[in-house]
Design a protein around this nucleic acid. Structure first.
Lengths: 210, 210
DNA sequence: AATCTATCTTGACAGCAGAAAGATCTCTCG
DNA sequence: CGAGAGATCTTTCTGCTGTCAAGATAGATT
């Protein structure tokens, strides 16, 4: 109970190392990017030896996979946050979720890349696959609300889904790589307006018009 | 002039190591992905010691940067190839270049990621910056041909450019990560038709309609 | 109290990038 | 012709990485 007399050594067992490692991994990812990510760096951040993570995550990619799974949850939260401030009609709601999509990407660039453009996250993992599917399902449901029927099964519906996802994702990804300078230079309100205008093109009133 | 009598040792000087390394790097990238890319692997492929590349490219990122610059040239070629087979009206031409965009991404996934989503390619390099700008300029010019005036300077024009680029890039990138299953499952002709329909939404007849 | 199991540390190894120094070839200029 | 000079390539070394194996420690169970 009392101290050892000299420096209080950290306890041998961390207590919640799993959480601590996920936090550390997120910071590591944010600061050094996915290509500079290091398992040893995460361990050091969490104040633990370099081999400790292996007990909670199989290997470096295992840690990244768990982090990506968490990412998809926050990804959905960002979309819902935008929707809460938007009008309730289906079109406004779908556009708002697109704005949330971009919000998340800009706020967590490396994590976004891990989730959408990396081979290191293992999508056969149940956790990750489940959360990623949930995000996709949310999009489909948003499109269904506009068109009034389930987009699955008929081509026009799938076109709407792919157009919406494609344009939102493309804008987000290009902004992350520093392209889309005009958008990046705009003040927030103007940027939101421009993004909304573009995203809205994905689901025109007359979907079959060319 | 005559042989040494035993095994003919490869010449000390390679002759065209720079080219050989670029070829090797492309194969290395295609086979092991950007995250498995190794400078030593490239050297071995080119039949040369691991330190030889340093004389032609500063370091591993230098080699990748040169490769990305080459990539942007072929990227443009893919777009022009599609346009050659398409009707000459501006809209068909712009859609065709989008199909070429996707062609390139699907044919060179890792290279595409290097060009658009990696921190390893150095875009301050003159070569790379020049070729990347050329690709972007080509897109802008394609949009200008539709709208009849230079998209720069006025907001509506920039919206057209960003919408076109965003939707094309988004579709390509998502297909690369194995999403967009419906599109990937289609036979080529159907896929082209679907992609064209979606890309066309980026520049509607009445650009201001919501 | 004794043992069992999960957790964490230490030490080792192979592969990697990059730097430094030396070897080999080609070329130019006297 | 031939002697530097400079470019090209190899060898060697250092420090970092991920992963594995073996040992130390703590908490839980019985």
């Amino acid at each position: 109970m009392e101290t050892k007399g000299k420096s209080e050594r950290p306890p041998y067992h961390h207590g919640d190392l799993r959480h601590a490692l996920l936090d550390a991994a997120e910071k590591e990812l944010a600061e050094r990017g996915i290509e500079g990510f290091t398992l040893r760096g995460c361990a050091k951040r969490a104040g633990v030896s370099h081999a400790a993570p292996a007990h909670h995550f199989r290997d470096a990619n295992g840690l990244l996979t768990a982090l990506a799974a968490l990412g998809f949850e926050r990804f959905l939260s960002c979309q819902k946050a935008r929707q809460a401030d938007a009008p309730q009609d289906p079109r406004s709601q779908l556009v708002a979720s697109g704005l949330g999509y971009v919000d998340f990407a800009l706020a967590n660039p490396a994590l976004f890349r891990l989730m959408f453009a990396s081979e290191r996250a293992d999508f056969t993992s149940d956790d990750l696959a489940h959360n990623a599917d949930a995000a996709f399902g949310y999009l489909v449901q948003g499109v269904a609300a506009i068109r009034g029927r389930d987009p699955y099964g008929h081509t026009a519906g799938m076109l709407d889904v792919m157009a919406t996802w494609g344009i939102t994702h493309g804008l987000a990804d290009l902004m992350l790589s520093g392209r889309m300078k005009p958008l990046l230079a705009m003040p927030p309100a103007a940027r939101d307006a421009a993004l909304s205008q573009i995203i809205g093109r994905a689901f025109p009133e007359r979907p079959d018009d060319r």
